[in-house]
Design a protein around this nucleic acid. Structure first.
Length: 557
RNA sequence: GGCCCCGUAGCUCAACUGGAUAGAGUACCUGACUACGGAUCAGGAGGUUGCAGGUUCGAACCCUGCCGGGGUCACCA
């Protein structure tokens, strides 16, 4: 009843509403066509439509953050694409954005590959073996693991092994179970390779010139490899930090906090903080021997970044297995009264699992980033050759388009999923090029772009002659109208999937429009020009939204 | 075991934050090019939203308890 009355009132008193109906207590209003046409006129005349006015707020986005002992894999790809996309979306929402990464280039894992190269490398280099630097070094990391296994295998039949096993008789393990569990302890206690790796780490920490030289060389190879992959993915960083430079940071802050009573010293000399008020328990912030930890470094790095760039807020793109770490880090920074502490956000994305199970580097079930990209390019190339649409272009132009399609498919596939959700990747079926995919959206864009050659500058007066819209046309304008608010929402929730979903819905609506409404042969007054203007507005929004996901649009495909 | 996240079509994902008949894609079946490009469009089939209660005009969404999956509980990163 109320709906009925309200409907009457609104349709009689508001110019923009010309009808209504009520169903099950819902009031549906019909908006007049000229509301839609004028909305389109406005959208078409707005440069950078959807983007918000820039504010003074600066936000730093940390993402990627790889280790220099092995190449990037599918998990890194999700991280990198999310980080890059979030940075773009924040920019579109008006923020100033700084991208950064922190490269883990030190520690026992790094010395493992260094040692393997020294012992078994015979002076080989990425150049001499024609191998991408990160893969080259990663192979030595794997080789180390293999040699260690062999060493461990031999040891298992010796007297020390028997002794260790006998001590744990009451655990009722089979020898297999025991040796599996004992591996880490073996590495620290008996392994010759383990001892050598630790010695190398000590040498590194003591700045032994030969060790430092080797470390620099090998890290250089890896970073060169990473750079190639970053370039292929189209991402970059305003600032790169290295753990070798930052791992001692934070110690003075801890001492400071101790003075201020934020931290306390345990009997054994370690320094800790009580986070019971946040239900996070006790967290150690410095070891009893005075050396620093992961959190110590992160505390120091946060302050250093703030001193360096004065950002207002910060987003850490890091997997959800580190939720506890970041909750604790943020709580500690808050206790220390760091000015930015309340504006830190951990974008905790879910793991990428394979249909065959989890990705585990030890079991060789990781999907390598470079291999995956290469596979995608080959799939796209094969498909493109069969379609034979761009054969007249030069080889370089063809390659570029095929790369755009391949990466468009990969990026859209990853980013269409809500970041918080664990996602499943099927390596056999790989990634589709049809249906709800990047190339589908690119194809819709190519259609809008293809129209341009049939039109010169259009006269708005002619466009305005078109007054009665078809539902497909209204649907497109409705979607376009929503775009600015979706950018705001995606920025607020740090969720690129909102943008991905918009781009897909718009492309889908355009495909339907394409089939239902002829453009060049339209006969109603102004229809041809109106539909061209609509197509261009759609094309711009498609290109812009996909750009926020890091996807480029080809003009032909 | 404590704490945290998740469970939606065979499969991969949605669902405007509590609203109408839970939507897409894929795979399967059927139809549409003398057309601005078919990487397209239209149709069919596919669901007890893990299970059982509760809250209310109304629940995939909130509460409780189970079941199943994952993560985390380091003086590792």
């Amino acid at each position: 009843m109320v709906a009925e009355e309200l409907g009457w009132f609104l349709s009689e008193n508001m110019d923009s509403i010309n009808g209504f109906n009520t169903v099950k207590g819902f009031l549906n209003l019909t908006v007049k066509d000229d509301v839609w046409t004028s909305a389109l006129t406005q959208i078409a005349a707005t440069p950078n439509y959807g983007h918000q006015e820039s504010s003074a707020e600066t936000v730093m986005v940390e993402y990627a953050s790889p280790n220099t002992n092995k190449p990037l894999h599918l998990g890194h790809i999700r991280n990198i694409l999310l980080g890059w996309s979030i940075a773009n979306i924040l920019k579109a929402a008006g923020k100033k954005v700084l991208t950064t990464q922190i490269v883990n280039d030190r520690g026992i894992a790094i010395t493992k590959s260094m040692l393997a190269w020294k012992k078994y490398g015979h002076g080989a280099t990425p150049q001499s073996t024609q191998t991408k630097g990160d893969h080259f070094v990663g192979d030595f990391y794997v080789l180390f693991a293999k040699k260690l296994s062999e060493e461990y295998q031999k040891w298992q039949s010796g007297p020390e092994a028997k002794k260790e096993f006998d001590v744990r008789k009451n655990q009722k393990w089979t020898p297999e179970e025991f040796f599996k569990k004992f591996k880490d302890e073996y590495f620290n206690k008996y392994s010759i390779l383990g001892k050598e790796a630790r010695e190398m780490l000590v040498k590194w920490e003591n700045h032994d010139p030969e060790t430092i030289q080797l470390w620099k060389t090998m890290n250089g190879w890896v970073l060169e490899g990473f750079d190639k992959t970053f370039e292929t993915l189209g991402v970059s960083f305003d600032k790169t930090y290295f753990e070798s430079d930052t791992y001692l940071l934070g110690k003075d802050i801890v001492q400071d906090g101790l003075q201020k009573g934020v931290f306390y010293k345990n009997d054994d000399g370690s320094i800790a903080v009580n986070l019971d008020d946040k239900k996070l328990g006790e967290k150690i912030v410095m070891r009893s021997d005075g050396t620093s930890l992961y959190v110590t470094q992160d505390i120091g790095l946060a302050r250093q970044r703030h001193q360096e760039f004065g950002m207002d807020s910060m987003v850490y793109v890091v997997g959800n297995e580190q939720i506890y770490h970041f909750d604790a880090l943020f709580a500690i920074l808050e206790k220390l009264d760091e000015p930015y502490a309340k504006k830190l956000y951990h974008l905790a994305y879910g793991m990428v699992d394979l249909t065959t199970g989890k990705m585990k580097s030890r079991e060789g079930t990781v999907v390598d980033a470079d291999d995956l990209i290469e596979d995608m390019i080959q799939t796209a190339t094969k498909e493109s050759q069969e379609r034979n649409e761009i054969a007249d272009l030069s080889k370089d132009q063809q390659d570029l388009i095929r790369k755009n399609i391949a990466l468009g498919a990969l990026k859209f596939f990853i980013l269409k999923v809500n970041p918080k959700k664990r996602m499943i990747f099927n390596p056999e079926e790989s990634i589709e090029l049809q249906g709800q995919t990047g190339p589908y959206i690119q194809y819709a864009y190519v259609r809008t772009a293809g129209l341009k050659k049939h039109f010169d500058n259009i006269d708005q007066n002619i466009v305005n002659q078109y007054v009665t819209l078809k539902t497909e046309e209204k649907d497109l304008i409705k979607l376009l109208v929503k775009y600015p608010s979706l950018i705001v929402e995606a920025a607020k929730t740090y969720d690129p999937s909102i943008i991905a979903s918009f781009a897909y819905n718009l492309a889908k609506a355009y495909s339907k429009f394409w089939h239902e409404c002829t453009i060049l042969k339209a006969t109603e007054p102004g229809a041809k020009e109106f539909r061209f203007q609509l197509s261009q507005a759609v094309g711009d929004a498609l290109a812009d939204s996909m750009k926020l996901l890091g996807v480029d649009m080809p003009l032909r495909m």
